[in-house]
Each structure stands twice: as structure tokens, then as C-alpha cells.
């Protein structure tokens, strides 16, 4: 990052400043022998100038290296993704789909899950359709929607459980909620994923 390179550059500059200061300070000291081979300060100056030079080159190179590895991961604009048709989706069932961007809007194949809540759940949640990232917020395993045991989102890796109504973790190791997908339902019942809820505010 540019901040780190700035820091390195600043560090090198301060180091250089200290060296220059000490060199000038010592050379005007009465009785000193500036420039002699055995002058300890002159030796120290030469030693640390090599270090300063190296730090300068490393900071310089870091700017380009960082730019290089970053250059192929620019944010992209998301086109709506067709997920399913509302008429083909039973209440209390789920369908999985793929988002071409991750919650940071960087290009990725991000697995997601669309759930049509049962009528009583829908009443509690105030909506019928919810969609979340299917990658567990613990270590990134793929979560699944269990239709049997009390209807929950379950991660098979370390038994994390999420609330299908909100995406919040209920039990197990996950501590953060699943990122939620923004949905749009057309008049013919087609469901589209149009983005991530709160994208721009949350920076993971």
C-alpha cells in the first residue's frame, strides 16, 4: 500500500537526516580528525549509508510491486444475475447460485444461497425471500439450508449455525453474520440478484 511505502520512504529520509546531522556535528567538533580512515564516526556514516540506500531501494521497489499485484483485481460492475423463478420455489426450500463478485465487489465465483421462507417465518421477518453468501464467516466452508431440524443455515465444517431470517450466527464458531444479497423480483416471478446489501459500507 502507498501508506507503507510512504512510511518506508519517511524512515529512510529520517535515517539519512540523522546520519547527515551527526556527520556535520562531529566534523566541526574541535580536536576531531574528519575524513581520517580511523575516524569512528566516518566509519559509522559509511556503514549506515549502505543501510539507508538499501531501505530507499526497497521502498522504491515496493511501490511498483504493490501496484503490480493489485493491477488485475480492480472492482467490477455487477450485472443482475438470474437465480430462480418464484413459482418453482416451494416455501421452506432453498436454491444455490453463483455471484460473479464477492462482497468487496472484486471478481470472484462467490457461492450464494436463496431461501424462500415458510409463511410464519416470512411473517416474522417481514419478507418472503432472503439470500446470503454461502461461505461461512468462520473459515469459508459452504453452508447449507437444513429443511428438517427447525430450519436453519448449517455449516458442516465446524457445526456453525446461522439464522435463516437475518443471517446472524446462532451457535458454533462463526461470529459475524453472512453477507446478504440484494434481490429483485420481476412481475413474472423471476428472481434476480442485483448486488450485496450494504456494499460500500462494510469493508471486509
Amino acid at each position: 500500500m502507498a501508506d507503507l511505502s510512504a512510511l518506508l520512504l519517511l524512515g529512510a529520509l529520517s535515517l539519512l537526516g540523522v546520519i547527515l546531522y551527526l556527520a556535520i556535528h562531529y566534523s566541526v567538533r574541535p580536536g576531531a580528525k574528519p575524513g581520517g580512515i580511523d575516524d569512528p564516526l566516518r566509519r559509522a556514516f559509511l556503514r549506515y549509508s549502505v543501510l539507508a540506500s538499501l531501505v530507499l531501494v526497497l521502498g522504491h521497489a515496493w511501490v511498483g510491486v504493490e501496484e503490480m499485484f493489485r493491477s488485475l483485481t480492480r472492482q467490477i460492475k455487477l450485472e443482475p444475475v438470474y437465480v430462480a423463478n418464484l413459482r418453482e420455489l416451494e416455501p421452506g426450500s432453498a436454491v444455490s447460485f453463483m455471484m460473479p463478485v464477492d462482497p468487496d465487489m472484486l471478481p470472484a465465483d462467490h457461492p450464494c444461497i436463496l431461501i424462500r421462507l415458510t409463511p410464519e417465518e416470512a411473517q416474522r421477518a417481514g419478507r418472503e425471500l432472503v439470500a446470503y453468501s454461502a461461505r461461512c464467516t468462520h473459515l469459508g466452508c459452504i453452508v447449507e439450508y437444513l429443511e428438517t431440524d427447525g430450519r436453519e443455515i448449517y455449516c458442516p465444517c465446524h457445526a456453525g449455525i446461522f439464522d435463516p431470517l437475518t443471517g446472524n450466527p446462532i451457535s458454533g464458531p462463526p461470529k459475524r453474520p453472512l453477507p446478504e444479497v440484494q434481490l429483485r423480483v420481476e412481475e413474472d416471478g423471476s428472481i434476480y440478484a442485483v448486488g450485496w446489501v450494504g456494499q460500500g459500507e462494510q469493508g471486509e
Partner: peptide, 17 residues
């Protein structure tokens, strides 16, 4: 010599950035 070279390097680093 070393001081002059370090000065050049600082200028180059700033310009490069």
C-alpha cells in the same frame, strides 16, 4: 560520494513514487 549518491536516491524515490 556516498552523500551525493544517497541524495540522488532520495530524489529518484520521490520522483518514482
Amino acid at each position: 560520494v556516498v552523500t551525493a549518491l544517497l541524495g540522488c536516491q532520495v530524489a529518484l524515490a520521490l520522483l518514482g513514487w
